[in-house]
Design a protein around this nucleic acid. Structure first.
Lengths: 343, 343
DNA sequence: CTGTTAGCGCATTCAG
DNA sequence: CTGAATGCGCTAACAG
């Protein structure tokens, strides 16, 4: 290993000197500009010098010059929620294919952090951004769009966005949750409870709306049994389920706003000496990997997060490539009801 | 939302013009250089112009000039493995504190991807890197170190690294796995099987070594029962467990090289109509969140990944701040045996 | 306290 | 086919 530290790294000028050509030529071979423009002999000499010196392009300089950073950004609430790693992995794989790097931000669904990330994104001069906004409004993306940075949002905004370069990919959360709740009703479970996260994350609202709507439409007058946990995590699910268990009558089935909450609820139910689904049926949302592995395996709704991430990234790169221009697209993705043992 | 697209974004020169000062002054107030250097009135005028124009610094230009990118990189095998999101979240939180952004790479533990990521990292001019290498050797980091980029590695290399700016953070995997296997032996389980991933990821080797050593030392002559899955995932654990179940005699207890594999093994065991731990005891490694939520809850070894990530990031920023200089440090982190219901 | 000047490394005219 | 010159936006001397 080299002893000398902080050797200044070689520039195109250094390579040029070593190869006995001008810096322009180095740039030309590096960018594979017009295969004809540089003679084979020169090209080889330059390549040799590059390998020899261990030259690696300086992204900052290139970015300053070209206006492209080869960076895309991803804003998600929390990588610790198992839905998002898969989503991000999907993005990453596509980005990797295209020679782009991914800058990741966790926002915790907090507006302050979301705005901060947006600012960082602008500063970093990323070429495009995929965001899963919780509190952001469409207008918050205006500066980015004005800079010509395409945006893909996962989820919908209250006001549909048709701004140029502003794409949305989403699931019909309410319909999906509705399907699930109907399944619970069809199985004859009543009364029907729900555990959700306290924050009024618009993303979760659709699920609550679906629960209420189905209860009204097909609940035969049963009252709403809704309990909130602090966070959309297993801890939140556990706490909310505890609360539901203390009520009388207790629910015959519970819809958890996501699988992690369902897993937490499962623990609470077990601790109460009750069995799933014999005493209380339980359903989640997301179909994270462990939903299938749980005991009992979890009835849930699959969103296919990796596919979502890939699709979102593809949409972004279509914008970057100029393949698609103009008004924002709104792409609805399919969901699937997964019936397993828990309900 | 702005209709005009690709408005050129304002530079310091624009701000200067709007505020009626020179571009230097704008730079000064932006960098808060010497509070005394700029008069309060001017500062305010500049701030106003900045807000007015929506000026955001150009990271590329700044990076080119200063040599700092305010970017740190993280190399992990696969964000989809629940251990790593927590690890990365730890890094991210510290980086965020320091005003740095995180560029993330998934390598799948493949040497080709690892090298590619290293190259990308160099190109992006990141200021520091935290890597969880599977196939990389210490020498592969030499170019980065030569550029003056500090490196923190999670895990150990065969040859201890004392190069300047090259820190390592690690757990004594073998000791930890040894503790777990001893626990299994102490409970009187025999014969003792193990499921692991096929790849000879050095990271997992310690666990296998521990299993073999304990078997030799305290196994009273029992033969090794080791089955490999393709990947360190639930699918790999499921497949390997199937294989173990087909053997005769079948194992009384199984140590899975990580929790996801354990969860997969759990499914295989259940499918065989056997119970855990009554028929087969089962233990994992990592203590991912769902280990506690599983049914039965999983006996495992906790590595506290979020804390690991935070500590790794702190070590990196100590280098970046110049608080720590010189030879690489080797920081061993604690583990904890978590005995739950599965074994 | 503020302005002038000079690059950072690169891609790209434009001449030869 | 190759080289010289230019400027992207910014920070940091250095003058005034």
């Amino acid at each position: 290993m080299t002893g000398a530290s902080t050797r200044k790294r070689p520039t195109q000028a250094d390579v040029a000197r070593a190869a006995g050509v001008s810096q322009t030529v180095v740039s030309l071979v590096l960018n594979d500009r017009a295969l004809v423009a540089v003679s084979e002999a020169t090209r080889e000499r330059v390549q040799a010098a590059i390998a020899d010196l261990g030259y690696v392009a300086d992204g900052a300089a290139r970015s300053l010059r070209t206006g492209k950073s080869l960076l895309v950004a991803s804003l998600i609430p929390d990588i610790t929620n198992p839905f998002y790693p898969a989503f991000e992995r999907g993005i990453q794989d596509i980005a990797d294919d295209r020679g782009y790097d991914l800058v990741a931000y966790n926002t915790d669904g907090l507006r302050a952090k979301e705005l901060r990330a947006l600012r960082a994104v602008q500063r970093a001069r990323v070429d495009g951004i995929i965001a899963t906004p919780f509190q952001l409004k469409a207008d918050d993306f205006a500066p980015l769009l004005a800079d010509g940075v395409p945006v893909v949002v996962f989820g919908e905004f209250a006001e549909p966005t048709t701004a140029p370069r502003f794409d949305a990919i989403f699931l019909n959360d309410e319909a999906a949750a509705g399907r699930l709740v109907e399944h619970l009703i069809d199985r004859g479970y009543a009364p029907l409870g729900m555990v959700a996260a306290a924050d009024n994350h618009h993303r979760r609202e659709g699920r609550i709306v679906a629960y209420r709507r189905l209860l009204a439409e097909r609940g035969e007058g049963q009252a709403e049994m809704l309990a909130f946990g602090n966070d959309p995590t297993e801890a939140g699910g556990y706490a909310a389920m505890k609360e539901l268990l203390a009520r009388s009558p207790r629910p015959r089935a519970v819809f958890a706003a996501n699988d992690m909450m369902a897993l937490g609820a499962l623990v609470a139910i077990r601790e109460a000496g009750l069995r799933v689904p014999a005493d209380i049926a339980l359903a989640g949302y997301d179909d994270i990997t462990v939903a299938r592995l749980a005991n009992p395996s979890l009835t849930t709704v699959a969103q296919f997060p990796e596919r979502l991430g890939r699709r979102a990234a593809e949409m972004l790169f279509e914008r970057l490539a100029g393949t698609v221009v103009g008004e924002g697209r709104r792409v609805e993705m399919p969901y699937e009801l997964i019936v397993r043992d828990s309900a």
